[in-house]
Design a protein around this nucleic acid. Sequence first.
DNA 1: TTGACATATGAACATATGTTCAAGTATAGT
DNA 2: ACTATACTTGAACATATGTTCATATGTCAA
Lengths: 123, 123
Amino acid sequence: MSTVGTEILPQCEPLTCDSDRVEGVEPLGVEKAQQMADFFSLLGDANRLRILSVLSQRELCVHDIASVLGMTESAVSHQLRVLRNLRLVSYRKEKRKVYYQLLDHHVLDLYNAVAEHIDEELA
Amino acid sequence: MSTVGTEILPQCEPLTCDSDRVEGVEPLGVEKAQQMADFFSLLGDANRLRILSVLSQRELCVHDIASVLGMTESAVSHQLRVLRNLRLVSYRKEKRKVYYQLLDHHVLDLYNAVAEHIDEELA
DNA sequence: TTGACATATGAACATATGTTCAAGTATAGT
DNA sequence: ACTATACTTGAACATATGTTCATATGTCAA
């Protein structure tokens, strides 16, 4: 045991704000919070959302995605890799092209929920 | 009309990738995409999610939020301003303290959805 | 094999974001 | 009035993120 003589100040405790309100309040764990944040961050980019929006309508190759969205193929490819890593899209190769499609339709629920949320705010 | 002699290359059109797949595919508008992205980005921070997690359980003052989460009061205050601007939290002043509470419980739905999504992935 | 196309990748760059630090308000108690 | 507490704010700093550019990789066609 690490005793330090007499009278140790509990340094890690809040010194003031004696409210007992904090009791029983269980904060989200740091690790899980980070995982959730990573997931939300993934959707926190306009171009990524736009990519998901077109893939939700049709399977498309990189060039076409870039074409429809007015993005560079390189930029699209970079973003697709992010979506690939998170298992949100899958792809199949045909000839020289790589066709991407939405893999996790779970995401569309979030997408739609927020899309509606935005519309409500404007009203 | 801006005619340039004979045979003008349609420079702005995709030169290759003749797939008609793009037809009918309506991409999410840039503006709305940005609004949605902003909203998701808001949830794309671990500390902000943790703040929301404790506020979802109880109204708390800044000091207590900082205390429970192990954050600086300054950091908490900065983040609360973000949440305030987005109308996700409201506050009331009592004595010297400012008590914050969750305003938009709509967000909790998204929060829970992703929380479950994370849990599923681990299984 | 050569050349055009389709995509991927890495480095560099610019921008955005979050924390810290220091200073500023504001309020309550003595 | 003085001091401690509670919170806010702005600037500085470090980090993260996304795009661009140049360069790979791979595939098809001639």
